[in-house]
């Protein structure tokens, strides 16, 4: 048994496909990116190595900083708007029971399975100031209905709303599953104690959902950083650079401005930021949990002493 399980050749054959994919599709491109990031390569013809010139320029590139700020905005938007809504709706849905529960869960998730290309174009029409759905709704309620949703100040909100709408079902579903996994006994005990719904929600549901929330928050930050498809079709970063995102910006620089080297430099910084964000988030959540565990165990020791 032992010999069988440590056969080097077998192990190699099992992990090789995965490793090859990793090297070929992830590692090699990153190395290439790092290399081109140090050059002034336009994408064709000759080029020279310019050292850290691209990175120096990047530090002063307002469009790049705007794109990071936009990612932060989206992340906050997800955490403060989408997730609370999703938790509440999940909790409400959990109370409903019966066939309705299934029906609503299905309906909420539908936008999620539709391709981004369709979603983006659809919302472009919905936002259209002249004949779009949103302004027509405002008109139906007696308003003037001539809002320009993609003005410089509001465009990023418009993007956020589309993303919230598109991803709502996913977030809701995860919270819903989290709630279903909570032991019913706890609720029964709370009911016996005479706690009302609000108290049970804040005292039992929320605290027990903490691991789920943590996972979701991490996902929200990452997906805000990685945002590209929707923005690319909805606004392509405009007006100006008001809805610019890192992935979209590097694409524009490389394939529109003929600055392949610079685009790669953006890519490298982008990767570093994503890695850092994941590591930091994991550390933050991990630390807090561990501290708590330590504190609890500490108390127990005190008592024992």
């Amino acid at each position: 048994m032992k010999k069988l399980y440590s056969n080097k050749l077998v192990i190699l054959s099992l992990v090789l496909p995965g490793l090859l994919l990793f090297v070929f599709a992830i590692l090699a491109p990153i190395c290439l990116s790092v290399y081109y990031g140090f050059t002034d390569y336009s994408g064709m013809g000759s080029y020279s190595v310019t050292g850290f010139e691209n990175y120096r320029e990047l530090m002063h590139d307002t469009a790049f900083w705007t794109s990071l700020r936009n990612s932060l905005f989206l992340a906050i938007g997800f955490i403060c708007i989408q997730h609370p809504l999703a938790i509440v709706v999940a909790a409400v849905l959990d109370k409903l029971g019966g066939r309705g529960e299934n029906f609503f869960r299905c309906v909420y998730f539908i936008p999620n399975v539709i391709s981004v290309a369709v979603i983006a174009y659809l919302w472009k029409f919905i936002y259209n100031p002249d004949f779009g759905l949103l302004n027509n709704i405002i008109k139906a309620f007696g308003g003037k209905g001539d809002v320009n949703w993609f003005s410089t100040d509001t465009a990023i909100w418009a993007v956020l709303i589309v993303l919230i709408w598109h991803g709502f079902g996913w977030g809701m579903l995860i919270y819903y599953t989290g709630i279903k996994n909570i032991d019913q006994v706890l609720y029964e005990a709370a009911a016996i104690d005479g706690a009302d719904q609000k108290t049970t929600f804040f005292r039992i549901t929320l605290p027990l959902m903490k691991p789920v929330i943590q996972v979701n928050v991490t996902m929200a930050v990452i997906s805000a950083l990685k945002q590209m498809e929707t923005v690319y079709l909805l606004t392509n970063g405009g007006p100006g650079n008001s809805t610019q995102f890192a992935a979209n910006y590097l694409y524009q620089q490389a394939f529109k401005a003929f600055r392949y080297g610079y685009g790669n430099a953006i890519g490298v910084v982008f990767i570093v930021i994503c890695l850092a964000a994941t590591v930091i988030l994991n550390k933050v959540f991990e630390d807090r949990d561990e501290r708590k565990v330590r504190r609890l165990s500490g108390r127990r020791e005190e008592k024992a002493a």
């Binding site: 990793f22 992830i26 590097l250 890519g267 994941t278």
Partner: peptide, 24 residues
């Protein structure tokens, strides 16, 4: 080590590989 290495891919934004992969 191999497992962590492979899992690293989860953190890499797919679009950052767009430019070099095009070349490759």
């Amino acid at each position: 080590f191999v497992k962590t290495l492979l899992l690293m891919g989860m953190m890499i934004p797919i679009h950052a590989t767009l430019l070099p992969n095009y070349k490759i």
